[in-house]
Design a protein around this nucleic acid. Structure first.
Lengths: 337, 337
DNA sequence: CTGAAAGCGCTTACAG
DNA sequence: CTGAAAGCGCTTACAG
C-alpha cells in the first residue's frame, strides 16, 4: 500500500508538503505540487480515508436507513438523495430492512461511527424512539416518520391531504359508497391515508358509513380484498386502495371475475408508481414526489451537519410537509378521452 | 465525543482492556467486561470507525458502482446485494450515474479508500478500462460488463441466450418476419441481445432479413419505433424489444393507432419488470434474476476479500453466466386462457 | 513556501 | 487476565 510517506521520499519533500499538495493547499510551490501529483498518480496512490477522517472528524458520508428495498418507491428515494449528494461530494451508506425495532437500533449503531449524519425513513417507528437511540450529536433528518414532538427535522408527505382530496374527487364523480383498502395498522403513512379517507367521507357524504379492509401494501393483499368484493351482495361504488400495488392486485381479481373498472366499480390508488400508467384502465392515483423528498431531506441534513459546529439547537422544528397531487386517469370513472 | 479513554477512566482499567471487552475478547474477566459494557452503554459510546479501520485495514464496507438508479432493475440489484451483505455484516456504499468514462473513474477514485472491495456494473465500459483504473489490490467483481480477458471475476446475464430463445419461441408461434428494437449501440447487454436475435433468425428463418431499429432502453424510444411501424406498408409479424420499457412504449403507440397486439402484431420484451405482468395484453418477456445476481456477485467479492491475504492470483477467470427464463404471456400470440 | 512534531482513537503484540 | 507502548496514515498548528 502506498502512503504519503512513499511519495514524500520520492519527491524529496516532507509528508506535510505532500499532504498539502494533494489537498490543493495554496501554500505549495506549483512545481512542487505538480511533481508530487505526478508521483502520486504514477504510484496509483489512494489516500486512506480512515486516517483522514480520524483527524478531520468527518467521513463525508451520510447514512440512509430504509425499512425495505422493494419496489420503485425506494429506488426513487435513493435516486433523489444520490443526486443531491453527488453535488455536495457526499457518499451514501445504505441500509435497508430494519423491519422491527431491534433491527432499527442495530442499524443505527452500525452506521453511527461511519457517517456524518443520518437520513431515516421508518414509517413504523416514531421520533421518540429514534431520538433515544441516536448517538448524541449525530445530525439526523426523518422522512415519513411519526412525529410527536421532536427536535429532529422531518419531511413528510401529505398523506392525509392526498387521501382527503382523492375521496373528494370520487364524491365529485358521483360515488357515494366508497370503501378503502388500508395499509398496515402500525404504519404511519397508512394511518394518515386512512384518516384522510375517514374525514373526507364524514365531510362530503356524512351519512355514508366508512368501510375499511386492512391490507399490507402488497399486491397480494389487494387480490384478497378483490375476492371479498366479488362475493358481496352490495358492492361499493368505488374502492380507494392505500397504495397502487394493492389497487393493482385488486384490479386483477375484479377483472378476472368479469367486473369492469370503472363502469361496474371505480378503483383508485396512491403513490403513482410508473406501472399505474400502463395498466388497463390506467389508474387514478395520488402522486408523491419521492425523489424530491430525498433531495430536500438530504440538503436539510447537510445544512445541519455544517451548522453543527456553531450552534446546538434543541428547538422543536416543524415538519416539512410535501404536497401531493391528484393524477386523474380513467379507473375512477372519468372519461379521459 | 466519548472515547475508550473515557470509559477506561470510569472503569478504572486500561484502554486495552476496554478495547478487548468491547470486542468480546475472551481474555477479559466477565465482571470487568460487564462493567465496561455498562459504562459504554451509559455514555452512548460509539466506536470511531476511522480509528479502528486505520489499524485493522478493513472498512467492512463494499462499494457498489451503478450506471444509473432509474427503475426497478437497480433497486432489485441493490436489494440482492444488501440481503447478502447483511448476513456478512458488510456495509454498502452506493454510487450511481457514472454515465461516462470520466465519471466512472472519479467514482472509483472516490470510493477506493473507503471500501474493502468493489461491485461494478457498467454495461458501457469494458473490463480493461476498469482494470486499469482500479487501485492495485482492491478486489472487484464485475456485473454485466464487456469482458475481453480479465482477471476480475464477473457475472453476466445470458443476454445472448435469452434473446435467442425468444426468437425461437416467436418462430415456433408461426412468426417469420421478426423485427427488433435494439438498445444503445455501445451497451454490452444490448449488443448481446441483438446478437442473439440475429443468430436465431439466421438459424430458424434463414431467408428472413433482420430488421433493426436502435432505441435507448427508454419508453420514449419505444413510442418512436411504434410510430414508424404504424406507417409501414408491410409490417413485421412480431416485434422483439430489447427491454420491457421499450416494448411498453411501442405497445401504447400501436394500441392508440388501433392495432391489436398480438392479433395484428406480436410484441415481446426483455427483463420482466413487474409492470409487464399488468399491462394489457400481459407482455411475453425474458426474466432475469437480478437480485440473485447481486447476491452472487457479493458473495464472490467477499471470498475474494477474504482470500486476498493469502494468494494473489492473476489467473484469468471465466465469467459466471446467469441463465434467463422465457416468460410466456399473451402478447406474443399464444392463447394463454 | 516548507518541515518537524503532535495527535486523531483505536488494536495488538509483548511483557507480566 | 491486564497494562504500557507502539503505531496505523493522515492533517495542521507552529516555527522558520
Amino acid at each position: 500500500m502506498t502512503t504519503i510517506r512513499d511519495i514524500a521520499r520520492l519527491a524529496k519533500v516532507s509528508i506535510a508538503t505532500v499532504s498539502r499538495a494533494l489537498n490543493d493547499d495554496i501554500k505549495v510551490r506549483p512545481e512542487t505540487a505538480l511533481k508530487i501529483k505526478n508521483i502520486a498518480a504514477e504510484l496509483r496512490f489512494v489516500p486512506s480515508n480512515a486516517a483522514r477522517s480520524l483527524i478531520t472528524r468527518r467521513t463525508e458520508t451520510i447514512g440512509v436507513l430504509l425499512p425495505d428495498l422493494h419496489g420503485e418507491f425506494f429506488s426513487e428515494l435513493i435516486r433523489g438523495i444520490d443526486q443531491a449528494a453527488r453535488g455536495k461530494a457526499f457518499h451514501l451508506l445504505v441500509s435497508s430492512s430494519h423491519g422491527d425495532v431491534h433491527e432499527a437500533e442495530a442499524a443505527i449503531k452500525a452506521m453511527a461511527g461511519r457517517v456524518d449524519g443520518l437520513l431515516v425513513m421508518s414509517p413504523h417507528l416514531n421520533s421518540e424512539f429514534l431520538t433515544s437511540k441516536l448517538p448524541l450529536g449525530l445530525p439526523a433528518v426523518l422522512m415519513n416518520t411519526r412525529i410527536a414532538d421532536s427536535s429532529l427535522p422531518s419531511f413528510i408527505v401529505d398523506n392525509y391531504g392526498g387521501a382527503y382530496s382523492m375521496v373528494r374527487h370520487l364524491v365529485g364523480q358521483g360515488h357515494k359508497n366508497i370503501a378503502m383498502i388500508a395499509g398496515p395498522e402500525k404504519n404511519f403513512e397508512a394511518q394518515e391515508r386512512l384518516r384522510g379517507y375517514r374525514d373526507a367521507l364524514k365531510d362530503f357524504v356524512p351519512k355514508a358509513k366508512p368501510q375499511v379492509w386492512i391490507g399490507d401494501f402488497t399486491e397480494e393483499s389487494g387480490w384478497k380484498v378483490g375476492a371479498q368484493v366479488i362475493s358481496m351482495r352490495v358492492r361499493p361504488d368505488a374502492i380507494f386502495a392505500a397504495n397502487d400495488m394493492m389497487a393493482i392486485g385488486c384490479l386483477s381479481t375484479l377483472t378476472d371475475a368479469g367486473l369492469k373498472v370503472p363502469n361496474d366499480i371505480a378503483l383508485v390508488g396512491y403513490d403513482d408508481i410508473p406501472t399505474s400508467r400502463f395498466i388497463s384502465p390506467p389508474l387514478t392515483t395520488v402522486r408523491v414526489r419521492i425523489a424530491e423528498m430525498g433531495s430536500l431531506a438530504f440538503q436539510c441534513l447537510v445544512s445541519k451537519i455544517e451548522e453543527q459546529q456553531m450552534t446546538k439547537s434543541d428547538e422543536i422544528v416543524v415538519p416539512h410537509i410535501l404536497r401531493t397531487e391528484l393524477v386523474i386517469r380513467s379507473s375512477c370513472g372519468v372519461k379521459t378521452r
